[in-house]
Structures are given as structure tokens and as C-alpha cells.
Design a protein around this nucleic acid. Sequence first.
RNA 1: CGGGGCGUAGCGCAGUCCGGUUAGCGCGCCGCGUUCGGGACGCGGAGGUCGGCAGUUCAAAUCUGCCCGCCCCGACCA
Length: 565
Amino acid sequence: MRISKLFGKTLREVPADADTVSHQLLVRAGMVNQLGAGVYSYLPLAWRVLKKIEDIIRDEMDKAGGQEVNLPVLQPLELWQLTGRDKAFGKSLFTLYDRRERPLALGPTHEEVITQLVGRYARSYRDLPLLLYQIQVKFRDEPRPRGGLIRVREFHMKDLYSFDVDEAGLDESYRKMLQAYQNIYDRCGLPSMLVEADSGAIGGKDSNEFMVIAESGEDEIIYCPDCKYAANVDKAAGVKGSIDNGKPLPVEEVATPGMGTIEEVAGFLKVPQSHTLKAVFYIADGEMVFVVIRGDLGVNEIKLNNQLKAGELRMATEAEVIEAGIVAGAASPVGIKGFKVIADDSVKSGTNFVAGGNKPDTHIRNVNYPRDFKADIVADIAMARAGDKCPECGGTLASTHGIEVGHVFKLGTFLSEKLGALFVDEKGESHPTVMGSYGIGIGRLMAAAIEQNHDDKGIIWPVPIAPYHVYLCPLYREGSEVAKVTEKLYEELEAAGLEVLYDDREESPGVKFNDADLLGIPFRVTISPRTLQKDSVELKKRSEREAELVPLEEIAAKLKGLVEG
RNA sequence: CGGGGCGUAGCGCAGUCCGGUUAGCGCGCCGCGUUCGGGACGCGGAGGUCGGCAGUUCAAAUCUGCCCGCCCCGACCA
């Protein structure tokens, strides 16, 4: 490809509304253009990268036994109402009406469609297992698109769905997909991390995410440096450690004038925050919920809602708390009545806690569970943090940030039951298929690759997903052979099967080199009167500082070797 | 949806507070010439509903109201 003909233009200045590195570089390189919030056009260079990623994914899906299909984006809303997931997705579901006023959704994912489809065709255990996938556009009306391609409203996704006769089959399909995903990230040159995850709106039981570690990542990951344990903070279960406060003592009221927050109370009474219990209030589907947790810990709302299973969960406002007759600043589970009480299991981690007195300016010492208060539910609802102990090996947990580039779910049978994806077993009995679902965001993967591979000059593409292999860069001089030799070399390289971006513009060397760096093509070949004096060209890897001179007749073979790695 | 910021040429910005000539600057773009190993230079040129609508005024990019869009921080997810 000759740059003079390439659609797209590099920018010298950083676009004002991009502050994520990958976003800035994609725009500066002339690869993407924003149309609206979370909606982008992909120019030729970006599209080549996306296609390369897709090809790698396709290859791995096919190797794992997947069959590619293509499902409708336009889906009757009715189908979503059948599974109740129209509510789970809520406003993220793009809906529209056809000319007969019938409601439709733009597919945010395709479980409903494919489950119904499989129910029609796979009627026997002999038809299973099935692994069906597609690479196609998805629509999600995200509350807040951000970070360029990191989080968008229209995006390309590979989604695969597995259908098995039983749990053991699902486990096997799931295992195959984990391996295939690992292969995909490896082949894209991206180090990925497998973490435990919450299943969110998709639903289901086990769930894992693949993360690419990056500063700009939206997700916090809690992991153990000593073993394999790693989980999204939404899901992570840190061991909280116990608080040794001696044998349970009788409760004792203490005056705490003006002390409202845990910090103030603990400081005033000269006890660590971990020796206190705090009360936090939520509204779950309109009902006040009283949450108790050790003073040094934070509530993980996702874990909390996994206990409550509320449609809408939010913190109560101060007004709501007061209206409920709760003494803000000194609220306590001790003696409280008329609320659903959920306690974090940290209430069992020690003795003789300080808790609120349910009277203004009053706290109580020596509160012990379950002697002094009861809870409707006691479960882990705390936010795990670095420094907690690993639930697997007891090591000390650490935390980092990551970009979620893949998410897999063991769905089970709740969708196949609702949508009638049933099969008949050897005995002639009918059962719902056991499902799994597996997604990779293609554009996000590209953005993650840039986040992971760049420097202050631009992108540094891993070879397998680079838009072109070679940046052919002649430095013209009147009366020299450069133009002629370059044209010949261009043909030779292309004939050798290399993908060449040929900078045939009459620009100064600085402009060409800077564009080469910005675009991040892995190998730059410079031809100038100087190199031709030695019948050579200059070869520079984008990932390295130094260049080397390579004889003209060897360069094609050399590049071929480098690209094929 | 809550909080913060922004909207003037393809991109980056000034001008707006304090209304007043043909609305500027840099980059990029077009033409000619000189340059050429890390974003060269000269000369000439094209390009703008000042986000939109309404209002105030002799006069609005500038003041007022309403609306729209975009970015960032929080609750959601590939």
C-alpha cells in the first residue's frame, strides 16, 4: 500500500477529548474517527488490525470445534421478555419500534436468539455438544462510554455459545474455551491474566475474565503473588484476619459526644478501626436494608446484591436514614428492629467490638456476635483489598488494574429452560441443554494491545496484529537511484508475501520517521543515497533503538524470517 | 442519573468577563520555488451556519433563556 493513496491522515497534535493513550494514538494515527459518544468509524489501518485479530480468533474457535454462524442484530423485544433479561439489561438495551409499532431490541448479546435457534435444531443428545459462534456487531447503551475504544456503545464481539447434555460436558466446553482464549491472547502478543469474575447481567454461576494489565484499566484485580488466585475486585474474597480482643466482656455504654464517623469514634476511644462495627444503609427495591460490617472494611455492593438479589440497589440518602428513625452516626445492630439486617462475616472475626448505641452521642463497647445482635444473613459482602490474606494459600494479596478483554460464563440451564432448548437423552427423556457463553471484544482488544505496546512516539504493534509488516521508507534525493530501487524492492517484498506500507510521499525524513513510529509498523526499511552506496538498506525494528545495514539482496529473506518469527 | 468541564476552519487554540470595522493565530490542505537522515523555509491561496433556537439591543462569537452534543469523575460491562 502506498501511503499517498492510503485513506486516513496522521495528526501532529493530540486530540483534545482523548486522554487514554490508546485513544490518543488511534486518533493521531488516523485509524479511528468518533461519530458520537461511544460510536466510531474504523479507517483502513484499524480495520486491518481488527481483521487480523478476528482471523486469529476464528482460527482458535474452529480448532476448538466451534462453528461460525451469523445471527440477527434486530431482535424482537418479546424474546428478551421471555427470559426476563430485558430488565437485567435495563437501559443498556437499545430498543426501537418498527412500522407496526412492535418493539425491537438491538442485540447487546445473543443468548436468547441462539438458544431458541438451537432448541429448534438440536433435539437429540446426538446433536450435542455444540459450539456456535459469530463475530459481529453488538449494541449496548452504556451509561458512560469512555476511553476511546475501551468502552463503546457499538462494538464488534466474538461470542460463542456452548450447549452440552450435562454439567460435565459444560465443564469440558468451558475448559476448551479457556485454553482457546489463552491461545488467542498469546498469539496477539498480549500477556493476559485469568481472574474470577461476577457474572453480572448475563447471569449464571461460574464466570472468569481475561485481563490485560494496564494503568488505564477500569477494573481492579486482587491477586495472590504466591499462588494462582486472582479475582476481579467485584468478586474477590480476601480473608479478613481475626481480631483478638480477649474473652467476651459485658456490654458497656460509653459517651462519644460529637463522634459520628468510624474514624472519629475509633480515634476518640483509642481503638483501631478494625475493633469497631459500622452500619451502612441501602435501599433494595425500595426497602431499607441495614448492613453491618467491621469498621475497617468497605461494602462490596455486588456481593451484597448477590445476597439480596434486588433489581435496584443503592445507598440510602441521609434523609431516608433519618426518616427511618435511625440515629445516624451511632446506628447499631444491637437492639435494632424492623429492618432486614445483613452482616458481613467479619462480625464473627473477633470479640468485644465497639458499635453504635442507637442513641445520639453514645456507643457501646464489648459487642459480640451472636450474643448481642442477630442478622438475617451473614455472608462475605466486604470489598477485598491488597494486604488481605489469600483465600487459597494464605499469602498476602496484592492489587492491580486491568482491561477486561474476555469474559466467559457457565450459564447452566436457566435460559434453555425458559426458551425450550430441550433435547432427548438415550432413554427418551427430555432435558434442558446446559449452556455456556464466551465473549471477546475485538476493538477493546486492539485498544488493550496499544495500551500494552507503545512509547512516547507511538504504537508498537505486535507482529501478528500489525496492520502492515514493513514500513518502506525511501529518502529521495534528486539524481539518485533511490526512487527506482525502492519501487523494485516494494514489488519484491510484496511478491514475497510481506505486507508493505510504502511511504512514497515527498516528505522530509523527519516527517516520515515520525509517522513510521506513530503508526507502529514493526519493521522499518530506509533507503537513501547513503545506504545505496553500500548496496544496502537500513533495517530498524520499531521495538528497538538501533538500526542495522542489510545488503539489498538479503533484505526480503531477512524480513520474511522476522515476520514469520 | 449525580458532580465537574467544554463547544469558534480538518486538528490544536485565542477572542467571550467589559457587545462595536472585512473573526484571528499555529498545524494541516492547494500552487510555485528552494531544501532533504528525526516533525525545513519563502511567496501566494482555499477553507468558518462562532453547537442550535429564541430573546435583549441601533449592533451579539460576546449578554439572557431554553435545547443539543462531547469529554472527565462516580453507580454498569466485551
